[in-house]
Computed example of a mutant assay.
Amino acid sequence: MSFICVNDYEVYSKNVLPKNALDYYKSGACSQLTLRLNIDAFQRLRIRPRIMIDISNRDCSATVLGYKIKYPIGVSPTAMQKMAHPEGECANARAVGAFGSIFTLSTLSTSSIEEVAKAAPNTNKWFQLYIYKDRDVTREMVLRAEKAGFKALVLTVDASVFGTRYADVRNKFHLPAHLRLANFEGLKSNKINHAEQNSGLTEYVNKLFDSSLSWKDIKWLKDITKLPLVLKGILTPEDAIIAADLGVAAILVSNHGARQLDTVPASIEALPEIATAVGNRCEIYLDGGIRYGTDVFKALALGAKMVFVGRPAVWGLTHSGEEGVTNVLNILGREFDETLALTGCKSVSDIKKSMVVHESTYSKL
């Protein structure tokens, strides 16, 4: 089989992954309406290309939190990647480094902060964080990420409780016995042992997550770290404005891969009003539903500075580890570069909001 698009890697993965792992990676919350919307909403957007422009010299790079990256396409935090490949997060991080972009490590990873730092020393790495009931757990994670050279903290703000994913409930999902949630191994503040980790992810996480989380905790987190803070999981302009008022470095418009609250909007649907509300007060990113280079272009036109992908990287990882992730990212990069060329854009700064419209613009004709 010739692997020429992201979907090819997804089809392969769905044929080879064990059901427990596959359902965990691919499923969304409840009826999975938002999971479908994340893809479908991109298909309802139309690109309005400009022509007869010299695009012989193109530059796909972007500057994000002060760092230049080759492509505005990074990798989102995804938990437990050793279920997809024995090298898990380490292989994924190396691939992102070779691609010249940003890798985000999940707190719920099967490779530790320190292992990923050692495996991919030259990759621009961010660390995804939760604020736990035991604030010492959070503080210790932050200190470890700082010490390991991670460049930013990505705080997930849409998971004060765990969303219901029917597939995981039916499968009684648990981490395979030979794997560990590596960031909790040896953690001084950790009072939950390996046996409890394997009793079921939802039960484990609910023992850690803090349902009393509020905006005051953002101020607390900013006080204990010098790293830039990215808030992941914002879907409304009201919350985006509060985040900007608190001085966060960036907002990641995200519905958690459609895995938390079903029937919320697709990330790309929520993006425009958030971008309008926040303006240039902080950087804005997007994840959820990116499968083609045209999707990257659409997100940038509607206000994102860069996009992140989660599942596509896992599908590449499943296929052939680091090489597979590299191939998936290169496919998206090539498609994005091609989209720039065919829309008359020489760089990301040439992408204008007017170049992407909803399909209803044409259905009225």
Rank of each mutant, 00 (worst) to 15 (best):
A84R: 03
K305F: 03
V357T: 06
D168Y: 02
K346I: 05
F336Q: 01
E87N: 10
A341H: 04
L342Q: 01
W126L: 07
V356Y: 01
V161R: 15
S101C: 13
F184H: 06
D217P: 05
K147H: 10
Y285T: 04
N7K: 11
T78E: 08
S254F: 13
Q43M: 03
R165E: 10
N57D: 15
R58Q: 12
V309C: 08
I55R: 10
S363E: 11
D217H: 13
A98F: 10
N15V: 00
I192R: 10
D337W: 00
Y285F: 15
G97K: 07
T326L: 14
A29D: 06
T78W: 07
F173K: 05
F127L: 08
H358M: 01
T107S: 14
L187E: 09
N198I: 14
R144G: 12
G289Q: 01
T78D: 05
F42T: 05
K14F: 04
C30E: 15
R180F: 06
K232V: 09
W126I: 08
V357N: 02
K216Y: 02
D223W: 00
P49V: 14
S13R: 04
V278A: 06
E323R: 12
N255M: 10
F297L: 08
Y25Q: 05
T164Y: 14
G289H: 02
A266D: 11
W315I: 01
T156A: 09
V137S: 07
D217Y: 06
F3D: 00
A95K: 10
K14S: 09
K19R: 15
L332H: 02
L329A: 09
V137N: 01
K352V: 00
N330G: 03
T263M: 11
T107C: 12
S112I: 13
D210S: 11
S214E: 12
T263D: 06
L317C: 06
G344T: 02
I224W: 06
G303T: 01
V154L: 12
F173T: 05
N20D: 13
E196L: 12
L105G: 09
K19N: 09
S320D: 14
K216E: 15
S61M: 14
T339N: 00
F99A: 15
L45V: 05
L286M: 15
I224Y: 06
N57E: 15
A152P: 03
Y130N: 09
K133D: 10
S211R: 13
I113W: 03
P265G: 07
G293E: 01
L45N: 03
C5N: 12
N124A: 09
G316F: 09
A21N: 05
C5P: 00
L65D: 08
M1C: 01
A266N: 06
E269T: 10
A21I: 15
S354P: 00
A301Y: 01
L22P: 00
R46F: 03
R44H: 14
R58T: 11
Y12D: 12
L175E: 02
N92F: 11
V348K: 02
